[in-house]
Computed example of a mutant assay.
Amino acid sequence: MKKIFALCLFLAAVSLHAQELPAYRIYNSKGKAVDFGKMVRQLEKYDVVLFGEYHNSSIVHWLQLKATEELYNRAGDRLLLGAEMFERDNQEAINRYLKGETDDKKLAEEARLWPNYKTDYKPLLDFAKSKKLPMVATNVPRRYASAVAKKGIDSLYLEASEKDWVVQLPFTVTLETPGYEEMRKMMGDHAGGKAMNFVAAQAIKDATMAESILKNLQPGRILLHYHGDFHSKEYGGIYWYLKQARPDLKIAVISVAESEEQKLPLPADFVKTDFNLVVPKDITKTY
């Protein structure tokens, strides 16, 4: 009877273990699995942390918040935050919210918040507010990127009052930037001769965000930046522009991939950066 009971316990344990489903895995630049704590300890050593995301991935947004909390626990007010999701001309509205001078309703009226702001970015902004940390609105106002996509970078004309909202012109747009050639080819069939306009629209976002980071980065501090994965994948985008301006900066890139496999291995063709998150492809999406 005891043997049967022991066997039942063993089988139950095996069954339970077989049902354990990891929500994420983290791999370093060599493809070795590391835990969350080790990643955060390493991130504290960098000047800039570029945290790529899939905009609708619930687990990636949760990891961003947890990484922010843990970095704050280690670095305190040395931590600065910045986000693609907030545009430069909305910085004053963001600042008023952080100071408690406005509420959620007023912020929604004054800033162009993304549709998934409440579920995905409000927790980050509220954390910044609770710890009195700055949140830098780094992105170019979308109307300028849209104009570049339609008519090209040379068509962009700025009034004097608008120049603070866009990277200093002219700036470099080159297919040597990782990811841009891929984008040009992807858009080519749909955009024809205007494919480079879409590349330039991507570039003006990346260059503006990089410039925003540089303007706000201070010696001895860490700027943690949230943005879509394409903006820094394969060390392109924001990373490329930062390194062009400041080769001395220590910059960590966190990239994202999805997997249909239960153990969440790194995809075979994945180009690794400093830290690489793999999440289930069927994870709950926020939209």
Rank of each mutant, 00 (worst) to 15 (best):
K2Q: 08
F5W: 06
A6F: 04
L7M: 04
C8W: 14
A13P: 01
V14T: 09
Q19F: 09
K32P: 04
A33K: 03
F36C: 05
G37H: 11
G37N: 10
V40E: 01
R41N: 14
L43E: 01
E44Q: 04
V49K: 01
L50K: 01
F51W: 00
G52C: 02
Y54R: 14
H55Q: 13
S58T: 10
V60D: 12
L63A: 10
K66R: 13
R74Q: 08
R74I: 05
A75V: 15
L79D: 02
L80F: 06
L80S: 06
L81V: 01
A83Q: 05
D89Y: 00
E92P: 00
I94L: 00
E101P: 08
D103L: 06
L107P: 12
E109K: 09
A111F: 01
A111I: 03
R112C: 05
W114D: 02
T119F: 14
Y121F: 07
Y121Q: 00
K122G: 01
K129T: 11
V140T: 03
P141S: 01
R142Q: 12
S146P: 03
G152S: 02
D154G: 10
S155K: 00
S155I: 08
L156A: 02
K163W: 00
Q168M: 14
L169R: 11
F171E: 01
V173W: 10
V173S: 07
P178A: 09
G179E: 04
E182L: 15
M183S: 04
A195Y: 00
A195V: 01
A200P: 02
Q202G: 11
A203V: 12
I204P: 11
A207D: 12
E211V: 10
E211T: 10
S212M: 12
I222A: 05
I222W: 06
G228M: 12
H231S: 07
G237C: 11
W240M: 13
A245Q: 02
A245W: 03
L249C: 04
K250D: 15
I254D: 11
A257M: 14
Q262S: 13
L264P: 03
L264R: 07
P265D: 06
L266C: 05
A268N: 13
F270N: 04
V271L: 14
D274R: 10
L277T: 09
V278W: 13
V279I: 09
P280N: 08
I283A: 15
K285G: 04
T286V: 07
